[in-house]
Design a protein around this nucleic acid. Structure first.
Lengths: 182, 182
DNA sequence: GGTTGACATGTCGATACTGACACGTCTAGC
DNA sequence: GCTAGACGTGTCAGTATCGACATGTCAACC
């Protein structure tokens, strides 16, 4: 049920945002840590408004509704942040496949690991390039903690890539005689 | 839709397993990379049987049904492993909260990060202790790739703990004057 | 004046997932 | 003989999520 809190936090930070604005944030920055579809988003905005945690503070052109957080919403946000524990959502398809590596031929298994290593390397390069472009020192942006999550992403992907390289080696050592090059 | 494939892979590895047996595996080893509830599991076993990907190869006491993978199931498993790409399931409540750190008081924010650092350190200790107990060299177990995921878990938690320590420091540097000790 | 594209909100059906409940069996120990 | 506890399968209601579809507005450019 964290979409609720993601929206609450976002509206707290971006007073007067519309559903459309929020959707953009999910697509661009928040999407790396929490995904949501448009239909889910508008539905949840309705529920939050009904529940009195946010309110429509203004209406604009094209039916635009601008949302603000209410005192009740702010209280709920703080409650969530400091009085509840996040439960780790263990679901990782990439790792799941590793569990079943022995069910496919060695060349398929090695191929899978190679693809993962390449993909992770590519995404690391993308991040490095992105980091040079982003105007970090600009005022008024969501750049404060966005910077923290960016660093997290870098460490996360590097850790996964390194682990896959290690895992590939382990796999080969257990199956001597398999060609090492693809 | 990966529960389907998790079951397929598990049944391929453990021929003759029952729903109950599979549930135990989810609770103990597989649960770290993919979670499933009992109701989901039995439902999916029914669908897989209907679809001809697995079959009831024997029945035992207490209504026990033992499942085996069919050729069609094995083909689907391989298809999934080598011809489809895993989509990273981006949903991390721990990181989501970091995004909204500025919405709570500094002591709450620091408190949150400290709690996370403690929790991660604790789980790293648990893992280290667990690793010494597990009979790695035993035959017939799921220990082959379980070892890989165990190492992954260690690296993952260490990376997160280190990142939180770094993030905490970043946070404090942006807010000089906040007491550093809890 | 027309068209493209960003802005903007919503609904709907199908799945996926959760947590609780319901039911029955076999074994070991008292 | 009884009972606790593991073994074993299943249903159901409620919620979350996804992907597609429907609808309309405003600004800019040609």
């Amino acid at each position: 049920m964290s979409l609720r809190h993601a929206l609450l936090g976002l509206i707290a930070e971006m007073d007067g945002a519309s559903g459309y604005d929020l959707m953009k944030v999910f697509e661009i920055s928040l999407g790396t840590v929490w995904q949501a579809t448009q239909s889910q988003l508008y539905g949840e905005l309705g529920k939050l408004t009904e529940g009195g945690l946010i309110e429509v503070s203004a209406e604009g052109p094209r039916g635009r509704k601008e949302y603000s957080i209410t005192p009740a919403g702010r209280a709920e946000l703080r409650h969530w942040m400091v009085e509840t524990d996040p439960k780790p959502h263990r679901r990782d398809e990439v790792l799941l496949r590793v569990f079943f590596l022995d069910q496919v031929a060695p060349e398929d298994a090695l191929g899978y690991m190679d693809r993962m290593i390449d993909a992770l390397s590519g995404r690391l390069d993308d991040l490095a390039r992105l980091e040079e472009i982003v105007p970090w020192e600009e005022e008024g942006g969501l750049t404060g903690n966005g910077r923290l999550t960016m660093e997290y992403g870098k460490r996360f992907m590097a850790m996964r890539r390194d682990w896959f390289v290690w895992a590939r080696k382990q796999y080969e050592e257990r199956r001597p005689g398999t060609a090492s090059e693809a």
